[in-house]
Computed example of a mutant assay.
Amino acid sequence: MFPELRMRRLRSGKIRDLVRETSLSVDDLIYPMFVDENIDDVQNTASMPGVERLPLSKVADDAKEAADLGIPALILFGIPSKKDDMGSSAWGDEDIVQKAVREVKDELGKDMLVITDVCLCEYTDHGHCGMIDREKGEILNDPTLPLLGKTAVSHAKAGADMVAPSGMMDGMIGAIRSALDENNFKEIPIMSYAAKYSSAFYGPFRDVADSGCCFGDRSTYQMDPANSEEAIREVELDVLEGADIVMVKPALPYLDIIYRIKNEFKMPTAAYNVSGEFAMLKAAAQNGWLDEKQVMHESLLSIKRAGADMILTYFARDMAKMLK
């Protein structure tokens, strides 16, 4: 007890560093990239300062800049020139993400792990993550599964190192695992958006990815923010279906979920530090209310401390520069 015990003894100078329990490394970071088939020049997004839509011609250069900062992995999102009911621009060999994968791999090879987001919301004209029944206003689960399988296989054929299904369709991991295996891609791992909540923090992403819904919302297939036990069940099902890495999305409002999942399953766990989390800190920093570098580091450190092994974050490049 005090005064014999003084906790402050370990909080100064190099001693503070020696007893630090959690560290953040550039190796923990995954860099999200948006490639747009409709543009010839880089485009900024007002709600996500510093996050850009890239034309195909700029993708390899941007990926190389990330690699030069030591960032080991990126995840690709595509904005196609054509959208339809089925999202058919998601799985063609010459569609935008497939071309972007080849560009990055031709430039960097094994120096950059290329992950692809597997979902239909960026490719459908209605903005939902699966096929729909327009008359009933319903998102159709089972008819969507083969399309996700086709999309994952097309990404693997293009050279993707990992696929990341994000649509929250029941059975999607099993369908994708089967499709990959049947097409001789048994070695391609799946990073599942296993516990993806129906969150208001996704708004700015939908601006940059052009993936807003034209009717309803995503609450019938994304999780209720009030639920914790459901996240455990979702992750367990995805693991049983063949997921190699599981993800929690968003990150900061769901640190308790990250902690529970890491402790329950003890398997590689990712967290997505989403667009709304990024935009809040950026806006506060631009107004002089917060120190951007400090709150960026503290936020990402908290995600790591909660149990995440890897963090998808729009701060990836800024954080890598700071760590360097």
Rank of each mutant, 00 (worst) to 15 (best):
P143G: 11
K64Y: 11
D28H: 14
W289Y: 13
S23K: 06
L5V: 15
I261W: 11
N287R: 06
S81H: 08
I232V: 14
A164P: 13
I245A: 02
D256F: 00
S211H: 07
I115F: 11
D142N: 05
N183K: 13
V35R: 06
K324T: 10
D217T: 00
R6Q: 09
I79A: 01
E236Q: 13
F185K: 05
A164Y: 11
R177I: 01
M1T: 15
D106R: 12
T220F: 01
L323G: 07
M168A: 13
R53A: 15
E241A: 11
N273F: 08
D161R: 08
A46L: 09
Y314H: 12
V274A: 10
A270Y: 15
E94P: 01
Y123L: 04
I96E: 01
I15M: 08
K249F: 09
H126R: 08
M33R: 04
Y259G: 13
K82Y: 09
I139W: 07
G276C: 10
I30H: 00
P253N: 05
D244M: 09
F77S: 02
G171A: 06
K58Q: 13
A60V: 01
P253C: 07
G288C: 05
L56P: 10
A160F: 05
L10S: 11
K282W: 01
E135K: 13
S211R: 09
N273P: 04
D244P: 12
I39C: 00
Y202G: 07
H128A: 09
L120Q: 03
I261C: 11
D291N: 14
L323C: 10
T116P: 06
A194F: 01
S302P: 10
I96Q: 00
A243C: 06
P3E: 03
R206W: 03
T144I: 04
G216W: 02
V118C: 01
S302K: 02
Y197E: 05
E229F: 07
F265Y: 09
E103S: 11
F265H: 05
I257V: 15
S25E: 14
P72K: 04
E52W: 02
F201D: 08
A200N: 14
S199L: 14
R9M: 07
L113G: 02
L323K: 02
L240T: 01
Y31M: 14
M172R: 12
A160D: 05
D210M: 14
R233G: 14
M267A: 04
M131E: 12
G87E: 13
F215M: 12
A175L: 08
F34Y: 15
K186V: 03
A271M: 03
Y314F: 15
P49G: 04
L56F: 03
N44L: 04
M86T: 15
K262P: 04
K83W: 02
D142I: 00
C214Y: 01
E94Y: 03
G288L: 02
D84F: 05
M322W: 08
D133P: 11
H155P: 09
D106Y: 03
S57P: 12
D238Q: 08
S12L: 10
N273Y: 09
L108T: 15
I303E: 00
F77P: 03
C121S: 13
T269D: 02
S12Y: 11
I190R: 00
A306F: 01
G109C: 06
E236W: 05
E187A: 08
A60T: 01
K83C: 12
A271P: 08
I176Y: 09
C213F: 12
P72L: 02
V248G: 13
P253I: 04
A285F: 10
D224Q: 02
L312M: 14
G288V: 08
G78P: 07
M223F: 05
